[in-house]
Design a protein around this nucleic acid. Structure first.
Length: 507
RNA sequence: GGCGCGUUGGUCAAUCGGCUAAGACGCCUCCCUUUCACGGAGGAAUGACGGGUUCGACUCCCGUACGUGCUACCA
């Protein structure tokens, strides 16, 4: 089938993978799978200066963590390989040349100094950003302003040059965006963007069009920040003679910072104390590490679910979706037009939901490393029981340590003041008596334990309100945790006795 | 500055001309639990502004304001 849906995520390997990037991946993935199509990962490594070696593998790792596997990629290969633009370098020149030959593009020999000079000369209050466009191009050194012989000579002398698109005058470029509807641009306001750089690499503008065409991409999703350059791409599709094959466009709304306005950046995360990248990213140049959602203790399914709802909704009241459900229900038309402020509290709520409803089997491998790091040695069976007991209290994975370490070792800190507030000899005698009483018990189940506790309590003419909380503090160290007799059952008779005696000695 | 895009509670958002404007997060109160949490019940809180069109406008149109994005041989 020739009209099979094909989409692509095309990041440039320059650093960590931003939340918004993951959402773009997600929408691509959902759209592709919804339509039974293919999802391609293409690496746009056309910028030699910003290229970061480890970034590509990092991106692949992030997608893997999220469970958003591409059908074709540099790693996996595919019918349109290679999927790295550096490895496709030889392809672009031909198309740039074709455009020049057809009069849709031209050589430009201007140095960066000349460019800057032009901008400085023309800059004014009413034109704060002079462009290389129809109004200025004839004053610059290019194959439009120079004679054929001059151009030939410059070329022969290997003068560095770029190829620029020649934007037509007095034309309106129109296209229909799947999210925003019809959008149009006046070409007089569009500049002659560089297509092929002096180093022979294409710019994004040329590469995205050539590769989308060559890779038979049918739908192109990208962030809203690309909207202003859309007319360049539309014109290129036209000039290259591929108009009928142009993908449908969808410009996704931005993800904004929670306070104030503006695009969410990694700086905002640092400043406000939440992750922005999917996974920890260590910049090989600066050695600086930026934390990720994974390492903060997010479950990938929660992360993905949260992202799906940031800019899209199903129209129903459902908020928790499996990936399969998202695939089934996703539609690009229901993507919001306006940007969404990122709300970390809501993100945590999603994670809490997923932890609460996850099985101990699912959680065990995720939680175990945290305990191992604490030097806690345990069995999977015991840890699994602990997980089931405390998971509803855990929002992020590290919370399991906070909520569960007393199951493995006596609390380091004990909230003595809370016991001492209403402490007397009568209660002390009760606890001593109860230790003796439960010591004789053969059944150490929590039901039997509670029964024994109640019996001793009545004998001492005490009420639950008098001794239940002190017992909890003795075992847990503070006022939190699951049922206190269940805790006693879990840690065992000896440990229970020791913890009580220990606290008794301190009162 | 120019151009593009956007604008429903603090945040995410439903609504495709009938609204007494859903739901969720967060916040507050209460119940459950003599802990914490979960769960349950309730509460405060919303259509930027001004004009049209219409019997009727949050919904359609036009302005204005505000926000945001772009304006590189970066993506």
């Amino acid at each position: 089938m020739s009209n099979r849906v094909r989409v692509r995520f095309a990041p440039s390997p320059t650093g960590g993978l931003h939340l918004g990037g993951v959402r773009t991946v997600l929408y691509n993935y959902l759209f592709a799978h919804h339509h039974g199509g293919e999802f391609v990962l293409r690496i746009e490594d056309t910028d030699q200066n910003r290229y970061v070696e480890s970034a590509e593998q990092y991106i692949v790792d992030c997608l893997e963590w999220c469970g958003l596997y591409p059908d074709e990629s540099p790693q996996k290969g595919g019918p349109f390989a290679p999927y790295r633009q550096r490895e496709r370098k030889h392809l672009y020149y031909e198309y740039a040349q074709k455009l020049v030959d057809a009069g849709y593009a031209y050589y430009a020999f201007d140095t960066t100094d000349a460019l800057e000079q032009m901008r400085n000369n023309l800059r004014s209050d009413t034109n704060t950003n002079p462009q290389y466009d129809h109004s200025t191009r004839m004053h610059m050194r290019n194959s439009l302003s120079l004679s054929n012989n001059e151009v030939l000579e410059l070329l022969e002398k290997n003068t560095p040059y770029v190829i620029r698109i020649k934007i037509p005058e007095n034309t309106t470029v129109k296209f229909t965006d799947m999210i925003r509807g019809e959008i149009h641009f006046d070409t007089n306001l569009v500049d002659d963007k560089v297509l092929l750089k002096a180093d022979g690499m294409p710019t994004y503008h040329l590469a995205v069009v050539v590769d989308d065409y060559l890779m038979k991409i049918t739908h192109a999703f990208r962030g809203e920040e690309w909207l202003p350059s859309a007319p360049i791409h539309i014109l290129l599709w036209e000039y290259l003679g591929w108009k009928e094959n142009m993908p449908e466009w969808a410009h996704l709304p931005l993800i904004l910072k929670p306070d104030g306005n503006g695009k969410l950046s990694k700086r905002d995360g640092d400043r406000l104390g939440f992750p922005v990248f999917a996974m920890n990213w260590k910049d090989p140049k600066t050695g600086e590490t930026t934390t990720g959602f994974k390492e903060h203790g997010f479950l990938p399914e929660a992360f993905v679910n949260m992202l799906a709802l940031l800019g899209w909704n199903s129209g129903s009241e459902q908020e928790i979706f499996t990936l399969d459900e998202l695939v089934e229900k996703f539609s690009i038309e229901r993507v919001h037009k306006g940007g969404a402020k990122f709300d970390y509290e809501k993100a945590k709520w999603f994670n809490h939901q997923y932890i609460q409803h996850a099985s101990s089997e699912r959680l065990l491998p995720l939680v175990k490393p945290y305990f191992e790091k604490q030097g806690i040695d345990t069995t999977d069976a015991y840890l699994a029981q602990v997980i089931d007991l405390i998971k509803e209290r855990c929002t992020l994975l590290p919370d399991f340590i906070q909520q569960g370490s007393f199951f493995f070792k006596a609390p380091q800190e004990i909230d003595l003041p809370s016991i001492q507030a209403k402490w007397d000899d009568k209660k002390k005698q009760f606890f001593e008596a109860w230790i003796t009483a439960f010591d004789a018990l053969s059944d150490w189940g929590h039901t039997r334990l509670e029964q024994s506790f109640n019996e001793t309590m009545e004998q001492h003419e005490l009420k639950k309100g008098d001794v239940l909380l002190p017992l909890r503090i003795m075992l847990v160290g503070a006022k939190y945790g699951p049922g206190v007799f269940v805790i006693a059952e879990m840690i065992g008779k000896t440990e229970t006795g020791e913890r009580i005696k220990n606290v008794l000695s301190k009162l």
